[in-house]
């Protein structure tokens, strides 16, 4: 009897360059989401520096959502990652189910008095590398847009 083919991780009609993924705070889930988005970026032949920027920003955004947004929630509560990749830009939206926060309340980690503090550095890196970074009013949904650099 023929063996069943392994179940695809995502539905067969899912478009490889865009999608909405639910991710829980477990390494295999995080890796799978990462591979899906960065895989699409690589297929669109973004330069090495862009891939570095996008990998880091996605990682930092996911960690912020889990560590801060979901601080009071069980680890099996998923965040939602929505992404669209085309030749001109990459859109990544990460929505957590936490209460939200005011990004203006995060102390500037580059100030001398804060340089040894633990927090704020992830968001600083995201803002440095992404073309557009926006939180919704509640502060539980981060939208990041990366424009392909001009050749």
């Amino acid at each position: 009897m023929a063996q069943h083919a392994p179940q695809p991780q995502f539905s067969p009609d899912a478009h490889p360059d865009r999608g909405t993924i639910r991710v829980v705070n477990e390494q295999p889930d995080i890796d799978a989401a990462h591979n899906r988005v960065i895989g699409a970026v690589e297929r669109h032949n973004y330069p090495k520096a862009s891939i570095f920027a996008l990998k880091l920003s996605l990682h930092e955004a996911l960690m912020n959502a889990f560590k801060h947004g979901h601080k009071e929630l069980p680890t099996n509560v998923p965040i939602t990652l929505h992404f669209v990749v085309d030749d001109a830009k990459v859109l990544m939206e990460i929505e957590d189910q936490g209460p939200g926060f005011n990004p203006d309340d995060v102390p500037d980690p580059t100030l001398e008095e804060n340089i040894e503090r633990g927090s704020g550095r992830g968001l600083l890196l995201i803002k440095a590398y992404m073309s557009k970074v926006e939180y919704n009013k509640r502060g539980n949904k981060l939208t990041m847009v990366y424009q392909r650099p001009k050749a």
Binding site: F52, H59, M63, G118, R121
Partner: peptide, 17 residues
């Protein structure tokens, strides 16, 4: 090393201290 997160930077700061 090709990638380093902000959490890794935090650990390096602790090491430095």
């Amino acid at each position: 090393v090709e990638h380093l997160s902000s959490a890794a930077l935090g650990t390096l700061i602790q090491v430095n201290n």
